[in-house]
Design a protein around this nucleic acid. Structure first.
Length: 113
DNA sequence: TGATTGACCAACT
DNA sequence: CAGTTGGCCAATC
Protein backbone atom coordinates (compact mmCIF):
# COMPACT_ATOMS: atom_id res chain seq x y z
CA UNK A 1 0.00 0.00 0.00
CA UNK A 2 2.76 2.42 0.88
CA UNK A 3 4.42 2.06 -2.50
CA UNK A 4 1.27 2.83 -4.39
CA UNK A 5 0.36 6.22 -5.73
CA UNK A 6 -2.55 7.92 -4.14
CA UNK A 7 -5.00 7.11 -6.88
CA UNK A 8 -3.86 3.48 -6.86
CA UNK A 9 -4.76 3.35 -3.20
CA UNK A 10 -8.12 4.78 -4.09
CA UNK A 11 -8.60 2.09 -6.69
CA UNK A 12 -7.78 -0.56 -4.12
CA UNK A 13 -10.48 0.70 -1.78
CA UNK A 14 -13.04 1.14 -4.54
CA UNK A 15 -12.47 -2.41 -5.73
CA UNK A 16 -13.29 -3.62 -2.21
CA UNK A 17 -16.75 -2.10 -2.31
CA UNK A 18 -19.21 -5.02 -2.27
CA UNK A 19 -21.82 -5.54 -4.95
CA UNK A 20 -24.85 -3.37 -4.40
CA UNK A 21 -23.04 -1.12 -1.96
CA UNK A 22 -21.91 2.48 -2.32
CA UNK A 23 -19.63 4.82 -0.45
CA UNK A 24 -18.64 8.47 -0.57
CA UNK A 25 -15.55 10.28 -1.73
CA UNK A 26 -15.09 11.75 1.71
CA UNK A 27 -15.24 8.31 3.36
CA UNK A 28 -12.49 6.98 1.12
CA UNK A 29 -10.42 10.09 1.72
CA UNK A 30 -10.89 9.65 5.43
CA UNK A 31 -9.97 6.01 5.18
CA UNK A 32 -6.72 6.87 3.41
CA UNK A 33 -5.94 9.36 6.17
CA UNK A 34 -4.49 12.85 6.00
CA UNK A 35 -2.89 11.98 2.68
CA UNK A 36 -6.08 12.59 0.86
CA UNK A 37 -9.03 14.87 0.63
CA UNK A 38 -12.37 14.16 -0.95
CA UNK A 39 -11.32 16.11 -4.03
CA UNK A 40 -8.35 13.82 -4.53
CA UNK A 41 -10.64 10.80 -4.60
CA UNK A 42 -12.85 12.34 -7.26
CA UNK A 43 -9.80 13.33 -9.23
CA UNK A 44 -8.48 9.76 -8.99
CA UNK A 45 -11.81 8.49 -10.27
CA UNK A 46 -11.45 10.75 -13.27
CA UNK A 47 -8.09 9.15 -13.95
CA UNK A 48 -9.49 5.65 -13.48
CA UNK A 49 -11.30 5.96 -16.79
CA UNK A 50 -7.93 6.14 -18.53
CA UNK A 51 -6.48 3.51 -16.26
CA UNK A 52 -7.71 0.68 -18.50
CA UNK A 53 -8.61 -1.37 -15.43
CA UNK A 54 -12.14 -1.97 -14.37
CA UNK A 55 -12.92 0.21 -11.39
CA UNK A 56 -16.48 0.21 -9.97
CA UNK A 57 -16.40 3.98 -9.79
CA UNK A 58 -20.19 4.05 -10.04
CA UNK A 59 -20.29 2.79 -6.45
CA UNK A 60 -18.69 6.04 -5.30
CA UNK A 61 -21.00 9.00 -4.88
CA UNK A 62 -20.90 12.22 -2.94
CA UNK A 63 -21.88 12.63 0.69
CA UNK A 64 -25.54 13.23 -0.11
CA UNK A 65 -25.86 10.09 -2.24
CA UNK A 66 -25.99 12.31 -5.31
CA UNK A 67 -24.50 11.07 -8.57
CA UNK A 68 -22.33 14.09 -9.15
CA UNK A 69 -19.83 12.32 -11.38
CA UNK A 70 -22.28 10.51 -13.58
CA UNK A 71 -21.48 12.73 -16.51
CA UNK A 72 -17.91 11.42 -16.60
CA UNK A 73 -18.91 7.88 -17.43
CA UNK A 74 -19.24 8.70 -21.10
CA UNK A 75 -22.95 9.38 -20.78
CA UNK A 76 -25.41 11.22 -18.58
CA UNK A 77 -27.14 8.09 -17.30
CA UNK A 78 -24.52 5.35 -17.49
CA UNK A 79 -23.70 5.57 -13.80
CA UNK A 80 -27.33 5.47 -12.81
CA UNK A 81 -27.99 2.41 -14.91
CA UNK A 82 -25.01 0.60 -13.42
CA UNK A 83 -26.24 1.31 -9.90
CA UNK A 84 -29.81 0.33 -10.72
CA UNK A 85 -28.40 -2.88 -12.18
CA UNK A 86 -27.07 -3.63 -8.71
CA UNK A 87 -30.46 -3.17 -7.11
CA UNK A 88 -30.09 0.45 -6.13
CA UNK A 89 -32.98 2.81 -6.78
CA UNK A 90 -32.12 6.26 -8.06
CA UNK A 91 -34.49 9.15 -8.43
CA UNK A 92 -33.44 12.57 -9.67
CA UNK A 93 -29.77 11.53 -9.61
CA UNK A 94 -30.06 10.67 -5.96
CA UNK A 95 -29.78 7.25 -4.34
CA UNK A 96 -32.90 6.16 -2.47
CA UNK A 97 -32.24 4.52 0.89
CA UNK A 98 -28.70 5.73 0.60
CA UNK A 99 -28.17 4.91 4.26
CA UNK A 100 -29.07 1.27 3.63
CA UNK A 101 -26.63 0.94 0.75
CA UNK A 102 -23.88 2.97 2.36
CA UNK A 103 -20.64 1.08 2.91
CA UNK A 104 -18.06 2.74 5.08
CA UNK A 105 -14.49 1.42 4.55
CA UNK A 106 -13.58 2.67 8.01
CA UNK A 107 -16.25 0.47 9.54
CA UNK A 108 -16.52 -2.49 7.20
CA UNK A 109 -12.91 -2.88 6.17
CA UNK A 110 -10.63 -4.79 8.57
CA UNK A 111 -7.80 -2.70 9.85
CA UNK A 112 -4.50 -4.53 9.66
CA UNK A 113 -2.13 -2.50 11.76
C1' DT B 1 9.11 25.75 -9.98
C1' DG B 2 4.87 28.06 -9.57
C1' DA B 3 0.11 28.04 -11.06
C1' DT B 4 -3.85 25.52 -12.12
C1' DT B 5 -7.21 21.87 -11.54
C1' DG B 6 -10.66 18.91 -9.56
C1' DA B 7 -16.43 13.00 -10.03
C1' DC B 8 -15.90 17.04 -2.58
C1' DC B 9 -17.44 19.16 1.81
C1' DA B 10 -19.01 22.43 5.07
C1' DA B 11 -19.86 26.91 6.21
C1' DC B 12 -21.30 31.24 4.98
C1' DT B 13 -24.12 35.12 2.45
C1' DC C 1 -32.85 28.42 -0.48
C1' DA C 2 -29.39 29.02 -4.27
C1' DG C 3 -24.96 30.65 -5.11
C1' DT C 4 -20.28 31.68 -3.33
C1' DT C 5 -16.03 30.86 -0.59
C1' DG C 6 -12.44 28.66 1.62
C1' DG C 7 -10.10 24.43 2.62
C1' DC C 8 -8.43 20.15 1.31
C1' DC C 9 -3.80 18.21 -1.38
C1' DA C 10 -1.78 15.17 -5.25
C1' DA C 11 -0.98 15.42 -10.12
C1' DT C 12 -0.59 17.99 -14.32
C1' DC C 13 0.73 22.06 -17.30
Amino acid sequence: MEDLYFFEKVYTVVRLIPYGKVTSYGAIAEFLGSKGSARMVGWAMNKCISHSEIIPAHRVVNRNGLLTGKHHFGGPNIMQQLLENEGITIINNKIINFDSHYWDPLKELPLNH
